[in-house]
Design a protein around this nucleic acid. Structure first.
Lengths: 234, 234
DNA sequence: GTCTATAGCTTGATAGAC
DNA sequence: GTCTATCAAGCTATAGAC
């Protein structure tokens, strides 16, 4: 990442603004944070947001973009390593999932507060009707398609539809993990902790892998959406 | 819900404000919506937000609270019906999950735009560090504990820890579904659609049920969080 | 119950000195 | 590159007429 970008001091300021924005957006979302608050947190000035990025919205995009490339590079490496190291039958379902989610959990656990905040932000953006599809699609569609291709080889009899729905569930489980809301902490009385990424890395591929296999093999249930006995309140 | 609340006209205005707030908060979050916008959408007046609710934040709480009680009543009914209708061994894992998620998917699919927006809002609040644990815990902890108790009976050998983690994954998959971001639509080229709650009801209990069983029976994998070959970028 | 008017701030953005 | 000063617009909340 050694592209010469003009002045040294300016580059540092730019990065400080990105760091501050990342942390604050992760806490309160796009509208919950002011340019002034970001500048204050970065020991900088509101006018410099315009200078470096153009405006608040552009800063938001820059925050999302900054780590997306690195991330996709690493994820591709993991997926390729996973396939290279597998036997002639290819990697199994759980290994592919671990290769897809591992780099994220690893960075979130060991990458420092910036990465942690970044993933928390991703967790919120993913669940937002306003940004969700557009932002996530823009940055992460290629790696998701790569993941699904691997999965298609591991589960050759799975209907296409089931792979997409399974990915949907995987995605939800993953991003709630990132959001790091500590809900499971209080629910379990401290037995489980949202921030324990090692515990999650040991469980998420197994849990989700079992789901993928079930939908791929047994197909869909015939559960109907109707109340068991419709005499509810209202 | 026939409790006499003063004037008829006033009650209608109050409800219109709640409806408008529900829809707008679901789209852009708490900070992304102004009291003026809510009043305009409700064909009402900003001052009436203060009059009826006290302030913007109180209106937000009122929106979340309004449907929470009804919801918990119905969910409890489904869970009890599910246990009543089961054989002597009790209901199986998938039925319990369907009883837990069914009322939500049913309302989201058939309850009209208000319920749809409500669940979208829940999807965002759940993934927000600012509101997540506090709000969800306040309104939904009891029903979640009830659900976990049923699950404990269906999976008597499951370690406590695994039940909580499994619930965490279930919760993530469920709320991403509600958020209704249409991500899976574009990813699958239209083959799957976020809004197709029937498709989801037929799959989510199977997918998640397989995960619960896997963690309960086989326990945890020994996957370590470490890059397969650490020569990534940076 | 409703709405007008407005107080008192804060917002994102920018012009221009340094 | 940085920062001060400032703008117009928009914000929540409220007092008080109807």
């Amino acid at each position: 990442m050694a592209e010469t970008r003009g002045n040294r001091r300016g580059e540092q300021t730019r990065e400080r603004l990105l760091d501050a924005a990342e942390g604050l957006f992760a806490q309160k979302g796009f509208y919950g944070v002011t340019v002034r608050a970001i500048a204050r947190e970065a020991d900088s000035d509101p006018a410099l947001v315009t200078y470096y990025f153009g405006g608040k919205r552009d800063l938001f995009d820059a925050v999302l973009l900054r780590r997306a490339d690195k991330l996709n590079t690493i994820r591709l490496e993991w997926l390729e390593a996973c396939e290279r190291d597998a036997g002639p039958d290819g990697p199994d379902v759980e290994d592919i999932i671990a290769a897809f989610t591992g780099p994220l959990l690893d960075r979130s656990a060991n990458g420092g507060p910036g990465w942690k905040a970044y993933f928390s932000l991703i967790g919120q953006v993913t669940n937002s009707p306003e940004w969700g599809a557009a932002v996530m699609g823009k940055y992460f569609d290629p790696i998701v398609r790569r993941f699904l291709a691997s999965m298609r080889r591991a589960l050759p009899d799975a209907p296409e539809e089931e792979l997409y729905w399974s990915y949907h569930f995987l995605s939800g489980a993953l991003v709630l993990t990132f959001a790091d809301t500590h809900r499971v902490d209080s629910l379990s009385g401290g037995l489980c902790q949202t921030g324990d990424l090692h515990a999650l890395h040991a469980r998420l591929p197994e849990f989700v892998g079992a789901g993928f296999r079930r939908l791929a093999e047994h197909g869909v249930s015939d559960r109907k959406l109707a109340k068991p006995e419709t005499k509810a309140a209202e």
